Simulated assay, not measured.
Amino acid sequence: MIFDPLFGWIGLGLMTAVLLTLCLIPVIRGEGPKWKWFVRMGVVAVLALALARPGIAQKSTTEEYEAAADVYFLVDTTTSMAAEDYDGTTPRIEGVKKDMLELAKQLPGARLSIITFASTASTAMPLTTDHAAFASAVDVLTPEMSLNSNGSSITEAGDELKARMDSNAEDRPDNKRLVFYFGDGEQTASGSPDSWTSFAANIDSGAVFGYGTAQGGKMKESQPFGYGGLPGDTDHGGQNGGGQNGNGLGTGDQYIRDAQGNPGISKIDEGNLRQIGSDLGLPYFQRDGSSPVSAVYTAPKYDQQLVKKDGRVTVDEYYWIPLTLVFVWIAVEMVFAFREFLRLRSVMPSRRGGRGGSGGPPGPGAGNHPARGLVASGTAGSGQSGGRP
Rank of each mutant, 00 (worst) to 15 (best):
residue 4 D to C: 03
residue 7 F to W: 15
residue 14 L to Y: 11
residue 18 V to G: 00
residue 20 L to P: 01
residue 23 C to L: 14
residue 24 L to C: 08
residue 28 I to K: 09
residue 28 I to G: 09
residue 31 E to P: 00
residue 37 W to P: 01
residue 38 F to A: 07
residue 38 F to Y: 14
residue 42 G to D: 09
residue 42 G to T: 12
residue 43 V to H: 02
residue 43 V to L: 06
residue 44 V to Q: 04
residue 44 V to D: 01
residue 44 V to A: 07
residue 46 V to M: 13
residue 46 V to K: 06
residue 47 L to M: 14
residue 48 A to W: 06
residue 49 L to V: 14
residue 51 L to R: 09
residue 52 A to K: 01
residue 53 R to K: 11
residue 55 G to I: 08
residue 58 Q to F: 10
residue 58 Q to D: 10
residue 59 K to A: 12
residue 64 E to F: 03
residue 69 A to I: 02
residue 71 V to A: 02
residue 72 Y to Q: 00
residue 75 V to T: 00
residue 75 V to E: 00
residue 76 D to E: 09
residue 80 S to G: 05
residue 81 M to E: 05
residue 82 A to E: 09
residue 86 Y to E: 01
residue 94 E to A: 08
residue 95 G to W: 00
residue 95 G to T: 02
residue 99 D to K: 01
residue 100 M to F: 03
residue 106 Q to N: 13
residue 108 P to R: 10
residue 108 P to L: 07
residue 110 A to S: 15
residue 112 L to V: 12
residue 130 D to S: 01
residue 131 H to W: 06
residue 131 H to G: 10
residue 136 S to G: 06
residue 136 S to V: 06
residue 137 A to M: 13
residue 138 V to M: 02
residue 146 S to D: 11
residue 147 L to K: 11
residue 149 S to W: 08
residue 150 N to R: 05
residue 150 N to H: 10
residue 150 N to W: 02
residue 152 S to A: 12
residue 159 D to K: 10
residue 165 M to K: 13
residue 170 E to K: 14
residue 173 P to C: 04
residue 177 R to K: 15
residue 177 R to D: 05
residue 178 L to M: 11
residue 178 L to G: 06
residue 180 F to L: 15
residue 181 Y to F: 15
residue 181 Y to E: 05
residue 182 F to R: 00
residue 185 G to I: 00
residue 185 G to W: 00
residue 186 E to H: 03
residue 188 T to D: 10
residue 200 A to S: 15
residue 203 I to R: 09
residue 205 S to L: 03
residue 205 S to E: 10
residue 206 G to K: 00
residue 207 A to E: 05
residue 212 G to E: 04
residue 212 G to T: 03
residue 213 T to Y: 02
residue 220 K to C: 00
residue 222 S to T: 15
residue 226 G to N: 08
residue 231 P to Y: 06
residue 232 G to Y: 11
residue 235 D to W: 02
residue 241 G to M: 08
residue 246 G to A: 10
residue 246 G to I: 07
residue 249 L to T: 03
residue 249 L to G: 00
residue 251 T to K: 06
residue 264 G to I: 05
residue 268 I to Q: 00
residue 269 D to C: 07
residue 269 D to K: 07
residue 275 Q to N: 12
residue 279 D to E: 04
residue 280 L to Q: 03
residue 284 Y to V: 01
residue 285 F to D: 02
residue 287 R to A: 02
residue 287 R to P: 02
residue 290 S to D: 12
residue 294 S to V: 11
residue 295 A to G: 06
residue 295 A to R: 15
residue 297 Y to V: 15
residue 297 Y to N: 10
residue 299 A to L: 14
residue 299 A to H: 10
residue 305 Q to Y: 10
residue 311 G to P: 08
residue 312 R to D: 09
residue 314 T to L: 08
residue 315 V to A: 04
residue 317 E to K: 10
residue 318 Y to N: 07
residue 319 Y to F: 15
residue 321 I to L: 12
residue 321 I to W: 12
residue 328 V to G: 04
residue 333 E to R: 05
residue 335 V to M: 08
residue 338 F to G: 11
residue 340 E to L: 10
residue 342 L to M: 11
residue 342 L to R: 13
residue 346 S to Q: 12
residue 347 V to Q: 15
residue 348 M to D: 14
residue 350 S to M: 13
residue 350 S to Y: 09
residue 350 S to V: 13
residue 352 R to K: 06
residue 355 R to W: 08
residue 358 S to R: 14
residue 360 G to M: 04
residue 361 P to K: 11
residue 367 G to R: 07
residue 368 N to S: 14
residue 369 H to I: 07
residue 369 H to E: 12
residue 371 A to C: 04
residue 372 R to I: 07
residue 378 G to Y: 14
residue 381 G to Q: 07
residue 388 R to N: 05
